[in-house]
Structure formats: structure tokens, C-alpha cells
Simulated scan of single mutants.
Amino acid sequence: MDNRSRWNILVVEDEDPIRKLIKINLERDNFIVFEASSGEEALKKARATGIDVVILDIMLPGIDGLEVCQVLRKEFPGIGIIMLTAKSQDVDKIMGLEYGTDDYMIKPFNPLELLLRIKSLLRRMKISGGKEDTLVREPFSIDLYSQKLFKYDVEIELTPTEFSIIKIFIENPGKAFKRDEILNRIWGYEFIGDGKIVDVNIRRLRSKIEDRPAKPQFIETVWGIGYRWKA
């Protein structure tokens, strides 16, 4: 990511009033907004335009939001994705996160809260300091300039949220982090949602960096507290 003052947001929502409301509010805050009313249109615009964040509804005609999310995450690992859902069941939230979304919001929602979520996500996506600094915690290394993680010099593709979490761990080996502490550091104190978002992202991280995710060597569970990076 660069240090542009304006960011490209793709709003994927088949209900015109909701999509237009989101567009108006984001443009007031100086975002460049693209629109799509179907999954197929969303993928076409994402491929043709440099999109930074996608606001993605789950219930779409044709290809649904979960499948769109999966394709976007595969083709654009560094893109930010916030899922919109009219359902409140935990399974829907968790499914969205498992497919690679960074955050979610339940309809109906406050446009101001969505704006805060987008800004919080963009903070996680920005380059740290603009220097070619590297954090090393064998067998891992983190390139802070490109925001890339390597294991034995092989790149592991992470979402912006996953990168932010592992960066905190590698910077603080042996420190036990409470779930709320991780939530506040990554999503911000203004986050209003299910704390399970932390557990889902940890589980996703383990599946990418651990040789045996069921018996993690690096990200340990601290029972009754949260997680820590094994020193």
C-alpha cells in the first residue's frame, strides 16, 4: 500500500438504496467509490480497477458474497474485505471470516460505524514507517515495507488483519495477550461485534504458519486468557 490520501472502495450490494447510502457517506469522507450489484460485476470491477477495500454483501444474485470473497482473497491477498450480512447467527459470521474477510457488519448498521471500520482496516493495511525494516523470529521473517511474511524464506500469503496479528506476536515473544487486548489493538476500541473474530483469525493464521495446526508450535493458547507467541 502507498500513502495516498484517497482510497478506492468497491461497494457490492444488490439493494440500490443501501448501496447508494454507503456511496454517499464514503464520498463525503473523500473516498473514491465504485459500485457493483452482483458478484460477477464485483469481480469484473475488482480486476479492472485498483481496489483497496471491498464492502461485500453476502446475499447477492448469481455468485454470492462468500464465493466472491474467496475469489478476491485468492487473486488479491492484500485487499481489505468487510462483509455485510442481514443474518445475526454466529455461523454466518464465522463462515464469512473463514472465507477470508477482515471484518463484518450486521444489517441494519450505522453508516458512521461502517466508516470507522473501514478506517480501522486501512490503518492495518498501511506500510509501517516506509522503511525496509525486517523482523526476524526464526523460522519467520517479516518485511515491514512490503507487509509480507516469510517462513524459511518462502512467502506466506496473509490478509491485512492476519499480518497485523502476527506482527504483534513476533514483536512480543512470550507475552500473553488477552483476546480483548488483541481486539483493541487490531480492530480498535470502537469495534462493536463478536470477540470470536479474534479466535477465527488465530485459527486461520495457524492453518497457514503451523506444520500441525491442531498442535501449534508458535501461537500458543493461554487457557482462560488468550494467546502468546512461543518464546
Rank of each mutant, 00 (worst) to 15 (best):
P61T: 09
P61L: 11
V68P: 07
V68L: 09
C69W: 10
V71F: 11
R73H: 08
R73S: 05
K74F: 10
K74L: 13
P77H: 08
G78Y: 07
I79S: 06
G80F: 07
G80I: 01
I82R: 00
I82P: 04
M83W: 04
A86D: 08
A86T: 07
Q89D: 14
D92A: 10
D92H: 12
K93T: 07
I94L: 14
Y99R: 15
G100C: 05
G100L: 03
D102L: 03
Y104Q: 08
I106R: 07
I106C: 07
K107V: 02
P108K: 09
L112G: 08
E113N: 01
L114H: 04
L116M: 14
I118W: 00
K119R: 14
S120W: 00
L121R: 03
L122C: 03
L122S: 07
R124S: 13
R124I: 09
K126I: 13
K126Q: 11
G130H: 01
G130Y: 03
K131P: 05
D133P: 07
D133L: 13
T134R: 13
V136M: 03
P139Y: 11
P139S: 10
F140S: 04
Y145G: 04
Y145V: 05
S146W: 10
S146C: 09
S146Y: 13
K148N: 06
K151Q: 13
Y152H: 15
Y152F: 11
Y152M: 14
D153C: 02
E155D: 05
E155I: 03
E157H: 14
L158H: 00
